[in-house]
């Protein structure tokens, strides 16, 4: 009965969605939005505070927002405050995992799985490659698709590999805690530097450089590396909490 009610409710909501959006003059059909009248156009043209003319990859210098990757420009510059909030969401989630699963003395969860020598050695080799890819993605977040969150997830996945391939492996969790705390605090301090120097919290007060070069976009690559470290260490901590249990 419960399942039937749930199905009926879902169908009703689906029906409501279709009815309210079909022939709705305000809801544009896919692909027909006039972007020029919306905020997104200004993000593409980088002309919120000034008029830089045509934005050209590799040539435009010191734009109001420096990342060549427009998504990064929005996520980590125009709407950086949201990103700080998202970082906090992950932070409080990992705190919650530690609150519920963490105990004082921990040991690896007993599972009936004993990896052989080849798997352990092979995973160590892979670990380095995955870790480097993660760091690369985080560092190049302002130029190519990716950035701190996926980069951090890759860093954590390299830790997950070590945990899975070796039943006695434990990372130094204390180090992760310090990294997590330092990276988060540094993000806020960068924001406060913006407040003190430029007058606005999270304002990018460094030179934005040439669009598309590795050393460009001021604080953005630094912030993305910090986010990568924070996300990586937080998810690694979560993995550790899930794969350990109380004991000596």
């Amino acid at each position: 009965m419960k399942n039937f009610l749930a199905l009926a409710l879902s169908l009703f909501i689906g029906f409501l969605i279709i009815m309210s959006l079909r022939n709705n003059v305000a809801f544009p059909e896919y692909g027909t939005v006039n972007v020029a009248s919306r905020v997104s156009q200004a993000y593409l043209d980088r002309d919120v505070t000034e008029n830089p003319g045509t934005v050209i990859f590799g040539e435009s210098v010191n734009l109001e927002s420096g990342p060549a990757n427009t998504v990064t420009a929005i996520v980590a510059d125009y709407r950086s405050f949201d990103t700080l909030g998202e970082v906090t969401v992950l932070f409080v989630s990992s705190l919650g995992v530690a609150l519920l699963l963490g105990t004082k003395k921990q040991k690896r969860l007993e599972v009936d799985f004993h990896p052989n020598f080849m798997l352990r050695v092979g995973s160590r080799a892979l670990f380095g490659i995955i870790l480097m890819t993660g760091i690369y993605v985080a560092i190049h977040g302002h130029l190519t698709p990716g950035g701190g969150f996926p980069g951090g997830a890759m860093i954590a996945s390299s830790m997950l590999l070590l945990y899975l391939a070796n039943d006695s492996f434990r990372a130094k969790i204390k180090g992760f805690k310090i990294l997590e705390s330092a990276a988060g605090s540094a993000y806020i301090l960068i924001g406060l530097i913006g407040l003190l120097v430029g007058g606005y919290f999270l304002q990018n007060v460094l030179d934005n450089g040439t669009l598309g070069s590795l050393f460009s976009a001021g604080f953005i690559p630094i912030i993305y590396v910090l986010i990568g470290l924070k996300v990586g260490s937080e998810i690694s901590g979560v993995i550790d909490n899930f794969l350990t249990e109380e004991g000596v």
């Binding site: 919120v48 510059d77 125009y78 950086s80 405050f81 913006g194 606005y200 919290f201 999270l202």
Partner: peptide, 8 residues
């Protein structure tokens, strides 16, 4: 925040 006036 960030030096970009609303709504941007």
């Amino acid at each position: 925040i960030g030096g970009f006036a609303a709504p941007y």
